[in-house]
Design a protein around this nucleic acid. Structure first.
Lengths: 170, 170
DNA sequence: CTTGGAAAGTCAACAAGGCTGACATAAACT
DNA sequence: AGTTTATGTCAGCCTTGTTGACTTTCCAAG
């Protein structure tokens, strides 16, 4: 019963032992449990302030790419414009986000964080970075490289492009 | 350019370059984009069959630990019993899950997948494993070790225990 | 100059899946 | 006998996703 049908896992010898169904299941559960930890800290702050994860995501990417358009944000976040608009409207109403009418193309809205918006973004990302930093430090630089390599491979191609777009050319 | 060689330490002088805010932000975005890919394939199957991610999670952990109790599942999933109950009820009604009254403690319900339930679980986990396998294979065994090390460090302690409980002793 | 279509916004309706609170029941424990 | 535990259930609320229909603005091609 070593080799389960269709899995392609080779359990003979020691080749590709890391690709057994059980190893893959561990990877799946690692993603599940880790994602919970990943969102736990910002979620606490968000709940305090009456926002949700959708607001966090919007604020994050507006901060990453100031002046981005609504359409741009839409394709990054992968939600409908109605869904994003609801979130964006509360952020604009609350004075965290400014939607500037485009100069060249006046249909477009260019999104920027206000000072208050930047403050929230800072609080959220600091909480998230703290956990990520501790995890990175405890795991070590080689593990971090592996972590990123696997995650990058797990993305859909379009998302990988979005991800790589956000990498600074240092 | 930073040193990315096999020696491991990505450092410049005293600074741990892999812990800069920008590196941490990349890690955060990697988690965000990768999680999307991670759930994309099962989501497609679930939508077809009229279920959601909550059903997937329940089915996954019932399959992992057959005979687990409702309370047990509750603490693994981290949701309220009302929320889980709604999901569980549909699964039982649809004949995917069987809730057997406990022998020693008749208050408990021990959860098992029916054949139909196992079939769904297989379809879902196969889709997810396929992506995970491709990612693991492309990244290589060392990257997989790093991936798991970082994710484990990112979990809340209680979740880490749940995660490690699911590791087979073989 | 007209018009097609893209970008953005809005309204309505709906669903999944979280949550709280209250309450019911049976079984186990003390 | 009384309390605690495990589970289930009803009702209601929130966030965040969806679809569909429609309007306004405005760039750009004909």
């Amino acid at each position: 019963m070593a080799d389960r049908g269709g899995s392609g896992a080779i359990t003979r010898g020691d080749t590709l032992l890391f690709l057994t169904d059980d190893q893959l299941r561990r990877g799946i559960e690692a993603m599940f449990f880790a994602y919970r930890g990943f969102t736990a800290d910002p979620d606490r702050i968000l709940t305090e302030k009456g926002y949700g994860r959708a607001h966090h995501r919007a604020v994050h990417f507006i901060n990453r790419t100031p002046g981005t358009t609504v359409n741009n944000l839409l394709s990054i976040l992968g939600v409908t414009k109605q869904s994003l608009n609801r979130v964006l409207r509360t952020l604009v109403d609350d004075g965290l986000v400014e939607a500037r009418v485009g100069i060249r193309d006046k249909r477009e809205r260019h999104l920027h964080l206000t000072e208050e918006g930047k403050a929230l973004e800072q609080a959220l990302s600091e909480a998230q970075r703290n956990r990520m930093r501790a995890a990175f430090r405890n795991a070590g630089p080689e593990a971090v490289q592996g972590f990123r390599a696997v995650l990058e491979e797990m993305m859909d191609p379009e998302m990988r492009r979005q991800y790589l777009d956000g990498v600074e050319q240092g």
